[in-house]
Design a protein around this nucleic acid. Structure first.
Lengths: 219, 219
DNA sequence: TAGATTGTTAATCGATTAACAATC
DNA sequence: TAGATTGTTAATCGATTAACAATC
């Protein structure tokens, strides 16, 4: 049987690889600003304390082709990562929870350059509703479903207390959202076709604590 | 040669396992509140969409012993996780960067129950200095080194803009800090004995974007 | 040219999942 | 007792790392 390789475009990129790509992008931007034209995996690996082969494989997944002995054209590398991550077409998002974390997230102008545009915020606290935070208006949560449909919003960002998060997730799903960026410390039980990415600060803190506990125990 | 197993207490727990432990703890707390006395891996796995064997192995690392057919004593499980993660002896921490993210972090009372107590905040912005945010005073960054030594502070939390983060990391290391919880989107190049745990929102967002981009492409 | 670097295949490592005896 | 669940060993899976030919 002649092996004709089917290029499986649905093949998922490993999450660890995807997580590292923004770091490469940031470094490439800095180097470009410093006047560099090209960059090699060795340079990237050294700057970010990674293995050069790993960097090469990670970068390869974006589809860019480098030149032996030279490396990658920086502008091309930037574009390649941007298009792979979908940073070139910005997706509208709703933020739910306009507390201090929500406010901090609204302050990240960075997100706009990374494919995410928060177009409205929602809360159930009357004192917060109507106010605009960093140019984004805070609306009553009741308005979310109809607005989500009308504006074809695809991403919901949950920055509510834990207790509210489950209900909010259900509301987002019912409103036709496709992906949830969850900052609440709860497991969201949503249908499998809904994408969920958790930012669990307690998990991150747990890794820090466990390592520190061990380090101090060794002394 | 008789194989006497040396119990290697320096054996590190896998990071993925450590990341999942807080979720088990949260669930166990909830179940205890609902009147349950014991919990099985099957129950936990079902509630958190995980594999029962994985849950069992994760829990085993904390040293707790369960009862076949019954599961684990919930109170014992809670204590076991807490002591493993070092949540029972709270470590003092300094926060650097009293902007909106820093303010949000100061608002997480939760951290106090998770081994982290932010005892002071630092900034270089004169308008922020002197003010107390949620009961924690904001001090000029110059005071950090001497205070860190005097108070034996072990953890530094970096919530500054990216540009400042490298210098702050160096300052923290020079001040005798042992671990850094880094929220700035930069790679910190610190000595190997310093523990660094990164919370890179851009990496998390990248995973979400990449998955969503793929999902939408499939349609 | 010589040698650094890419692209790619193979080997290793570590985490997840499966299998199953022990046990309450 | 019967059967659900633990604890543990083995098999699988996937990511990282090593090896090496191709090439600018």
């Amino acid at each position: 049987m002649t092996a004709i390789e089917e290029v499986d475009s649905s093949k998922h990129a490993p999450a660890p690889t995807v997580r590292r790509l923004p770091g490469y992008h940031r470094l490439a931007q800095r180097l470009l600003g410093e006047g560099a034209q090209t960059v090699s995996c060795t340079t990237i690996a050294l700057a970010l304390s990674l293995d050069p082969t790993q960097v090469r494989k990670d970068i390869a997944i974006t589809g860019i082709v480098g030149k032996p002995k030279v490396g990658y054209e920086i502008r091309q590398l930037l574009e390649s990562i941007e298009s792979f991550l979908g940073w070139d077409n910005v997706t509208d998002a709703f933020l739910v929870g306009a507390g201090s974390l929500g406010t901090a997230l609204l302050g990240y102008k960075m997100f706009n350059e990374h494919g995410l545009k928060i177009v409205a915020a929602f809360d159930n606290d009357r004192t917060r509703i109507g106010v605009a935070i960093r140019g984004v208006e805070v609306l009553p949560i009741e308005k979310l479903p109809s607005l989500a449909g009308r504006m074809h919003v695809k991403i919901g960002v949950i920055a509510t207390p834990a207790e509210a998060a489950r209900d909010i997730a259900a509301l987002l799903v019912a409103s036709g959202i496709e992906a949830i960026w969850n900052f609440a410390p709860v497991h969201l039980d949503v249908p499998p076709e809904i994408i969920v990415e958790d930012v669990h600060l307690t998990s991150s803190l747990a890794v820090l604590s466990a390592k520190l506990t061990q380090k101090l125990k060794r002394k």
